[in-house]
Measured scan of single mutants.
Amino acid sequence: LTVEVTLDGRRIELHGLSEEAHEILRHALERNADDKEIKKILEELRK
């Protein structure tokens, strides 16, 4: 799955996400998580 997010003013596409990762990010974006929170989530998903 692919998600497009804006971090530090740049639009980035995240490819190859699992369903779980996609859901976690989608929920964070829906509640307008800040860049710091999104980065933390991405860091966790990379593990």
Score class of each variant (00 low, 15 high):
Leu1Val: 09
Leu1Asp: 04
Leu1Tyr: 14
Leu1Thr: 06
Leu1Ser: 06
Leu1Phe: 15
Thr2Asn: 06
Thr2Met: 10
Thr2Glu: 03
Thr2Gly: 05
Thr2Asp: 04
Thr2Trp: 11
Thr2Ile: 09
Val3Ala: 07
Val3Arg: 03
Val3Phe: 15
Val3His: 04
Val3Pro: 03
Val3Met: 15
Val3Trp: 07
Glu4Gly: 03
Glu4Thr: 15
Glu4Val: 15
Glu4Asp: 05
Glu4Arg: 07
Glu4Asn: 06
Glu4Pro: 02
Glu4Trp: 13
Val5Arg: 02
Val5Cys: 05
Val5Met: 04
Val5Pro: 01
Val5His: 01
Val5Gln: 02
Val5Glu: 02
Val5Ala: 02
Thr6Glu: 08
Thr6Ile: 14
Thr6Asn: 07
Thr6Ala: 04
Leu7Trp: 03
Leu7Arg: 02
Leu7Pro: 02
Leu7Asp: 02
Leu7Asn: 02
Leu7His: 03
Asp8Val: 04
Asp8Gly: 11
Asp8Gln: 07
Asp8Tyr: 03
Asp8Thr: 03
Gly9Asp: 04
Gly9Met: 02
Gly9Asn: 04
Gly9Ser: 03
Arg10Cys: 13
Arg10Asp: 06
Arg10Pro: 02
Arg10Tyr: 11
Arg10Glu: 12
Arg10Trp: 09
Arg10Phe: 14
Arg11Ile: 13
Arg11Leu: 11
Arg11Gly: 04
Arg11Glu: 05
Arg11Cys: 08
Arg11Tyr: 06
Arg11Phe: 06
Arg11Gln: 08
Ile12Arg: 03
Ile12Ala: 02
Ile12Tyr: 13
Glu13Gly: 02
Glu13Pro: 03
Glu13Cys: 13
Glu13Leu: 15
Glu13Ser: 12
Glu13Tyr: 15
Glu13Ala: 08
Leu14Cys: 05
Leu14Phe: 08
Leu14Val: 12
Leu14Ala: 03
Leu14Pro: 01
Leu14Asp: 01
Leu14His: 01
Leu14Met: 05
His15Met: 09
His15Phe: 14
His15Thr: 13
His15Asp: 07
His15Ala: 09
His15Leu: 08
Gly16Val: 05
Gly16Phe: 09
Gly16Gln: 05
Gly16Ala: 05
Gly16Leu: 07
Gly16Cys: 08
Gly16Thr: 04
Leu17Thr: 01
Leu17Glu: 00
Leu17Met: 06
Leu17Tyr: 04
Leu17Asp: 00
Leu17Lys: 00
Leu17Arg: 01
Leu17Gln: 01
Leu17Ala: 01
Ser18Ile: 02
Ser18Pro: 06
Ser18Asn: 06
Ser18Glu: 03
Ser18Ala: 04
Ser18Val: 02
Ser18Lys: 04
Glu19Gln: 13
Glu19Val: 14
Glu19Leu: 13
Glu19His: 12
Glu19Trp: 14
Glu19Lys: 13
Glu20Ala: 11
Glu20Ile: 10
Glu20Trp: 14
Glu20Arg: 11
Glu20Tyr: 14
Glu20Val: 09
Glu20His: 10
Glu20Gln: 11
Ala21Gly: 07
Ala21Tyr: 08
Ala21Cys: 07
Ala21Asp: 11
Ala21Val: 08
Ala21Lys: 03
Ala21Thr: 05
Ala21Gln: 14
Ala21His: 09
His22Glu: 09
His22Cys: 11
His22Asn: 08
His22Ile: 15
His22Pro: 01
Glu23Leu: 14
Glu23Ser: 14
Glu23Val: 08
Glu23Cys: 12
Glu23Pro: 01
Glu23His: 14
Glu23Trp: 15
Ile24His: 07
Ile24Asp: 03
Ile24Met: 13
Ile24Phe: 08
Ile24Val: 09
Ile24Glu: 06
Ile24Asn: 06
Ile24Arg: 14
Leu25Arg: 00
Leu25His: 00
Leu25Trp: 02
Leu25Asn: 00
Leu25Lys: 00
Leu25Asp: 00
Leu25Glu: 00
Leu25Tyr: 02
Arg26Thr: 13
Arg26Gln: 08
Arg26Glu: 04
Arg26Tyr: 04
Arg26Pro: 00
Arg26Ala: 06
Arg26Leu: 11
Arg26Met: 12
His27Ile: 11
His27Cys: 12
His27Thr: 12
His27Ser: 14
His27Asn: 12
His27Arg: 15
His27Met: 15
His27Lys: 14
Ala28Thr: 02
Ala28Cys: 04
Ala28Gln: 01
Ala28Arg: 02
Ala28Gly: 01
Ala28His: 03
Leu29Lys: 04
Leu29Val: 07
Leu29Arg: 04
Leu29Phe: 10
Glu30Trp: 08
Glu30Val: 08
Arg31Ile: 07
Arg31Leu: 07
Arg31Asn: 09
Arg31Tyr: 06
Arg31Cys: 06
Arg31Glu: 05
Arg31Phe: 06
Asn32Trp: 09
Asn32His: 11
Asn32Thr: 05
Asn32Arg: 12
Asn32Leu: 10
Asn32Ala: 09
Asn32Gln: 11
Ala33Ile: 05
Ala33Val: 06
Ala33Gly: 04
Ala33Lys: 04
Ala33Ser: 05
Ala33His: 04
Ala33Arg: 05
Ala33Trp: 06
Asp34Leu: 08
Asp34Gly: 11
Asp34Asn: 11
Asp35Pro: 09
Asp35Gln: 10
Asp35Cys: 05
Asp35Leu: 07
Asp35Phe: 08
Asp35Tyr: 09
Lys36Ile: 12
Lys36Ala: 14
Lys36Val: 13
Lys36His: 13
Lys36Arg: 12
Lys36Trp: 13
Lys36Tyr: 13
Glu37Arg: 03
Glu37Val: 08
Glu37Ser: 06
Ile38Phe: 05
Ile38Asn: 00
Ile38Arg: 00
Ile38Tyr: 02
Ile38Ser: 00
Lys39Val: 09
Lys39His: 11
Lys39Trp: 15
Lys39Gln: 10
Lys39Phe: 14
Lys39Ser: 09
Lys39Arg: 13
Lys39Gly: 08
Lys39Thr: 09
Lys40Glu: 11
Lys40Phe: 11
Lys40Asn: 08
Lys40Val: 09
Lys40Met: 13
Lys40Ser: 12
Lys40Cys: 08
Ile41Cys: 01
Ile41Phe: 04
Ile41Gly: 00
Ile41Glu: 00
Ile41Pro: 00
Leu42Asn: 00
Leu42His: 00
Leu42Met: 07
Leu42Glu: 00
Leu42Lys: 00
Glu43Ser: 12
Glu43Gly: 10
Glu43Val: 10
Glu43Ala: 13
Glu43Pro: 00
Glu44His: 12
Glu44Trp: 15
Glu44Asn: 12
Glu44Val: 12
Glu44Gly: 10
Glu44Met: 15
Leu45Pro: 00
Leu45Gly: 01
Leu45Asn: 02
Leu45Arg: 01
Leu45His: 04
Leu45Thr: 03
Leu45Phe: 12
Arg46Ala: 13
Arg46Asn: 12
Arg46Val: 13
Arg46His: 11
Lys47Gln: 12
Lys47Tyr: 15
Lys47Thr: 12
Lys47Arg: 13
Lys47Ala: 13
Lys47Leu: 15
